[in-house]
Design a protein around this nucleic acid. Structure first.
Lengths: 225, 225
DNA sequence: TGCCCCTCTCGGCACATGCCGATAGTCTCT
DNA sequence: AGAGACTATCGGCATGTGCCGAGAGGGGCA
């Protein structure tokens, strides 16, 4: 099985200012213990701890390579969190797609009658796809690691949450997750929490709302060339 | 400007068995000299040469980080090979798209009445998108680095070449390029060269042909959910 | 031919990585 | 309270990275 995620993770670690933290992020995301990981890599557990604590600031790529391989291999053997297929979740994710030609966030918003809630963040940012998520069902169905499935081939996408009360939980979930979308859209939200906006700002995510209902929204999204 | 390519390149180097070769591949792809790169990284040119020659087998991520940044920065300042937009090329690339849920290569082929030319390569390989390319126009319009644009958000895609005579040049171009597609489809080719098949085999790429004309092909492709 | 540019090779040095094992802290479960 | 699982901290050692500069080879072009 081919994992574009392999490169994604490796790249993220390699470019991270704090590679240790990034390593930890992914390890925890996959619910793997240091001890387990260490065994798979055939090193002592303290090595993992040392890396994650930042004792080595510029690990070599050999280390990265073995780390990523071990992470993914363990995940496949045990949880298989990553290798599950999307299809089982069609009720949680009623629609998603990636375009190959990114469109501007501003243009995307216009298509869905969206109103921006965050200021100053530039609307020329590119959006390469979208995912519509039923946030209620998501909470009950998906566990933390399942959130990976929300991201298609690109994380530079718009996540459209339906069934939003205050918009808190979605943003918190995003905050907690290693992959960040370019934009978050609340579909007919009852209210918008202050905290949600703050979090969006912190993460550099465009936050918007639309009053279209889910059916109309999806229909418009799917009409996008 | 956000570059998913940054991570892609970093990840590729990090996971490469011969990181030096991968570094060189990208540097040459962007037409940057060792000397130039070295200056930007504020190291002596011999350092670059040493890396590329493989004298260091496991460079640290700090090195990778600076390398990738330098490559992309130089490209932006000078050639801007990577930062050009897709849109200018609508005649060369009449259609392209990524799906977020990959489909099996075999299923893809069935959709377009494709016949596999390579054996043994498994048709269960996932295809995440496609690009239709007018190979004649491509030759005259795109230079080597422009080929990057052919790949959308994923390289695990099918490249469908129209206007193919022998199918040689497209495979050679692919051979020469760092990114490889999962599949190559020749649209109404006049003939199929032996060499093309050999190259496909070597690169682990599925090679296929279809007798649909471009209009019908694109219509079928765009009908895919 | 001679100059310039690009690249390669290599000895060599300081310092960081890669790794261990021992010790110790924090939970959770019983 | 104690056992067990997970993690953190750290001294220490061998090896490799990161980097330099000198020297040398190969084009291209005036």
């Amino acid at each position: 099985m081919q994992f574009p995620l392999r490169e994604k993770i490796a790249g993220e670690i390699a470019l991270s200012e704090q590679p240790g933290k990034t390593m930890r992020k992914w390890r925890e995301e996959l619910r793997i213990t240091q001890t387990d990981l260490a065994h798979h890599m055939r090193v002592s557990p303290s090595v993992i701890s040392d890396y994650e604590a930042g004792r080595r600031t510029s690990p070599g790529i050999k280390t990265i390579h073995r780390l990523v391989d071990a992470l993914l291999e363990i995940d496949q053997r045990t949880g298989q969190k990553l290798s599950k297929r999307f299809e089982e979740y069609s009720d949680v994710i009623p629609s998603m797609r990636d375009w190959s030609v990114g469109m501007r966030a501003g243009d995307f918003l216009r298509r869905i009658d969206g109103k921006l809630l965050t200021q100053k963040l530039n609307t020329r940012r590119l959006v390469n796809g979208y995912t519509v998520i039923d946030s209620i069902k998501a909470i009950t169905t998906l566990d933390a690691t399942d959130y990976l499935r929300i991201y298609g081939s690109t994380s530079e996408r718009a996540l459209c949450f339906t069934g939003v009360k205050y918009g808190r939980s979605p943003m918190i979930a995003i905050k907690a997750h290693p992959l960040k979308p370019a934009m978050v859209v609340y579909v007919q939200p009852e209210n918008i929490d202050e905290l949600a906006m703050k979090l969006a700002d912190l993460e550099g995510i465009l936050l918007a709302r639309t009053e279209l209902d889910q059916v109309e929204l999806i229909s418009r999204l799917e009409r996008i060339a």
